[in-house]
Write a protein that binds this DNA or RNA. Structure first.
Lengths: 312, 312
DNA sequence: GCCTCATATACTCCCCCTGAGCAAAAGTCG
DNA sequence: CGACTTTTGCTCAGGGGGAGTATATGAGGC
């Protein structure tokens, strides 16, 4: 019998609410997963149209900004142990991953869909003050696991940073992949064998969806610096504090307030609305809106500082 | 009858020779195209293995560094006018584009394959002194075409640069897409209708292959700054001048010699071999080689300056 | 052997970006 | 009215990087 080639679409739909970055998840038999739809070449002219179609139909959430992430085609990436059961008669699924951004985390219509925090799956990616991170010294665990291997140690250095080279927030995928190889995440045992590492970090997702999410997080974080994508996650009007909180939520670390204001105001991506709100118990904050320039997809992003904090 | 879903693999194999960036092309009925292979899920475990397999079989050229670019799935991207002929019974071809780098431009075994300069297809992307660029003021043509439309003018500004925001070499795709929309490239007429723009720039490629090439050029240029990919295009040993010429060929503009040396030497990506060569008629140059760090795929790239030249 | 030329290499200067902190302004709340 | 909170304005210093000058080291002509 013939194995058919199937193209699947996965989407990481991200939003920020109350200073927490969220991702839309779907409850599946094996655990949480990303929304998934099958691409039917008869029905859809482009991937993006198919994506919008199935997400809006499944969850009643509109997709705003959409960007292709990566195409995952490896055989066996869909849980090889399960494939022993389904055997060769299974279709070969190739998955195109997408990143989508929503300015508000509306409640999905679907019963099985829900917004989850990034930190559910990647607690170590949030280095903000006051945020709970139960994970201790992951880099230390990795270095013990590397056991002197120079190539591995260099990869750990670049992924988790050293004294000189700090933590680079966009390397979320590098970090996840190292943890997978070192069996510090549950997927590594599920996919390969039952030998467990010392501690498991974060909540697992089905298939390789946590890897896709890591890809999305890294891509989004990187893009903040050179494209005005942050405004796809903000409402119409916002204070600079709200903007900063959004950025901090995505980057995963705190930044200097006055310098952030300076860089944002000189970038020309926002303008005052000449109104203000006081919601914080302090001096009222001026409201801003995004300028037309911020709507040009090829425009520059925000000049954001690098993380300068403890190496965990 | 049923339309089948086919996954094709396209590769932009790049190399640098004599200070000129090259791409491996294949002669097709409609003109030059990129190497293309069909992905057979029965035979290949991953896209990358399939890619290496068909390229090496077709051209006898080994692929070194390989990186996925983008997956092109739009219906009609394969020359819609031709599809009128083939009609609905044609397979739906989805194409995964790859970028590959070769340290030397070996002669391909295949008769129909040949190395072509980037400038054949993108003469406007080379802003180095002394390089022929027959294309006059493209940005001016585009602005005339935009005819006051603010959104378009902003896109032109970011793509081609202004006095404040200079030319950003990695925006090759943005530039090509604008020129396509303005019908300044031959593909626009081939795909849509016969109405020609004022002047056509660069040589056309079949299907959307020039778009894929533009994607690859932009990606590679951007990556030079944050990954040590340049060494995938260099030989074992090289002088700093050769390294600089390679970088300049890819970036498409000249850079300050002394500052380039400084930044390269402080980056820790090269080390002296304690030998030297004199091939230029001047003082012999020290030979360098890439350090192990440069072989870490996640390591940082070279700190490269921005273009500061005339706005054409 | 000496001069000229070409390239490689070393060093200096300076501006501006950016990190960091101080201080005033403008509200709320008791 | 005073304590407190948050926003906003401003200053200052260090470093990275852009640009230029100067020196080193070879070849080749005469």
């Amino acid at each position: 019998m013939e194995r058919r080639l199937v193209i699947g679409l996965n989407v990481v739909l991200a939003a920020v609410r109350d200073g927490e970055p969220l991702v839309l998840c779907v409850k599946r038999p094996g655990g949480w997963g990303l929304p998934f739809g099958r691409f039917d070449p008869e029905d859809h002219r482009t991937f993006e149209l198919a994506l919008r179609d199935f997400v809006e139909r499944q969850t009643a959430l509109p997709l705003g900004y959409v960007e292709q992430l990566y195409t995952f085609g490896d055989k066996g990436r869909e849980a090889p142990r399960a494939s022993l059961v389904s055997g060769d008669e299974a279709d070969r699924i190739v998955s195109v991953g997408y990143l989508a951004l929503s300015p508000e985390a509306l409640a999905p219509s679907l019963e099985s869909a829900a917004w989850r925090r990034w930190s559910t799956f990647f607690p170590w990616e949030d280095r903000r003050e006051g945020k709970i991170r139960s994970c201790a010294d992951i880099a230390g665990e990795l270095r013990r696991w590397a056991d002197g291997d120079e190539v591995l140690e260099r990869r750990i250095d670049t992924a988790f940073g050293t004294e000189e080279s700090g933590w680079e927030e966009e390397r979320a995928l590098d970090r996840y992949e190292l943890m997978y190889e070192a069996r510090l995440v549950a997927e590594a045992h599920r996919d390969r064998d039952g030998v467990e590492g010392p501690v498991l970090h974060g909540k697992a997702m089905i298939s390789d969806h946590r890897r896709i999410l890591a890809t999305a997080i890294g891509r989004l974080r990187g893009k903040l610096r050179y494209r005005p994508v942050i405004f796809k996650l903000m409402g119409e009007e916002f204070t600079l504090r709200e903007l900063q909180e959004g950025v901090e939520a995505l980057l995963g670390f705190d930044i200097h307030k006055q310098n952030f204001r300076r860089s944002v105001e000189t970038a020309g991506l926002v303008e005052k609305t000449n109104t203000s709100v006081q919601a914080t118990g302090g001096r009222p904050a001026a409201l801003y809106r995004a300028t037309p320039l911020s709507n040009v997809p090829t425009a520059a992003g925000l000049a954001l500082p690098r993380f300068r904090g403890a190496a965990v």
